[in-house]
């Protein structure tokens, strides 16, 4: 699977689209990453999955003093990150997350990568297991421009966020915001907070369950956690087994 590198596979267009500098101040970060950075407390233990060139991680380490780790599929991305002093491993969200213990991180970030995983549902379940919170951002396939593109052109949409033609896209599991929320409900993942971004990266506080968000948002950023009921049920089951 080709690497869904943040700076290449998903180009946002506009002033924030340049590959992020390693020592970027918040202003230099891509909009969605800036939003994610704001959601993370100083000093937190953070795992950034699909960390690309390490822009978010570098920002968090420098400006928020987090204990930051990264995982990236592309070897060149990893080597560059490590060469810049970041703790990053070469790895794959589908294959290399399982080994982490429960609650290993305060926050696990999966930005613009979920749609490129082979088993998004399993990945999501793992995220909320290994992190107290997971922050997930993804492109909304229900965005009105994408709908119109398919309706009028009759061809697979190519947009600012989805730049690859169908035959070479790493994005194999695209979904709409409504799909995503439905899956969270199904597997008992709690949506603590959601922010939808329009095509200029401006945040809107629309109800992610409403049809407006699904139509107007080009992407969504979700803060998720494991449903407490699930944890209690698991603990109960473990207790019974013991």
């Amino acid at each position: 699977m080709p690497a869904p590198s943040r700076s290449t596979a998903l180009d946002f267009g506009g002033p924030d689209s340049q590959p992020a500098a390693m020592d970027s101040a918040a202003g230099g970060l891509r909009r969605d990453l800036r939003l994610i950075a704001e959601m993370i407390d100083p000093g937190a233990r953070v795992l950034d999955i699909g960390c690309g060139d390490g822009a978010l991680l570098a920002h968090l380490v420098r400006h928020k003093n987090v204990d930051g780790r990264g995982m990236e599929l592309s070897q060149s991305g990893v080597n560059s990150c490590v060469g810049h002093g970041l703790s990053v491993i070469q790895g794959d969200a589908d294959r290399d997350l399982e080994v982490y213990p429960n609650g290993a991180f305060d926050v696990v970030v999966l930005s613009q990568t979920l749609q490129a995983t082979r088993q998004p549902r399993k990945v999501l379940e793992t995220l909320v297991r290994i992190g107290r919170r997971a922050i997930v951002s993804f492109p909304n396939f229900g965005f009105w421009r994408i709908r119109l593109h398919l309706l009028f052109c009759g061809r697979m949409p190519v947009s600012n966020l989805l730049t690859h033609p169908w035959y070479e896209t790493p994005n194999i599991h695209l979904c709409t915001i409504r799909d995503f929320v439905a899956m969270c409900d199904e597997i008992g993942v709690r949506v603590e907070r959601s922010v939808t971004l329009d095509r200029h990266g401006r945040p809107y506080s629309l109800d992610p369950r409403g049809s407006l968000a699904n139509l107007l948002a080009e992407q969504g950023v979700f803060v998720l956690s494991e449903n407490l009921c699930n944890i209690k049920a698991a603990a109960h089951a473990a207790g019974q087994q013991g």
């Binding site: 233990r45 204990d67 780790r69 070897q75 990893v78 080597n79 990150c81 490590v82 970041l86 703790s87 990053v88 491993i89 070469q90 790895g91 290399d96 080994v99 982490y100 213990p101 290993a104 991180f105």
Partner: peptide, 18 residues
């Protein structure tokens, strides 16, 4: 080895050089 280190949430970087 990296997996074993991850399993204890160690701070690890892993680089393969071509």
């Amino acid at each position: 080895l990296v997996h074993a280190l991850n399993a204890v949430a160690a701070n690890v970087s892993f680089v393969e050089i071509e």
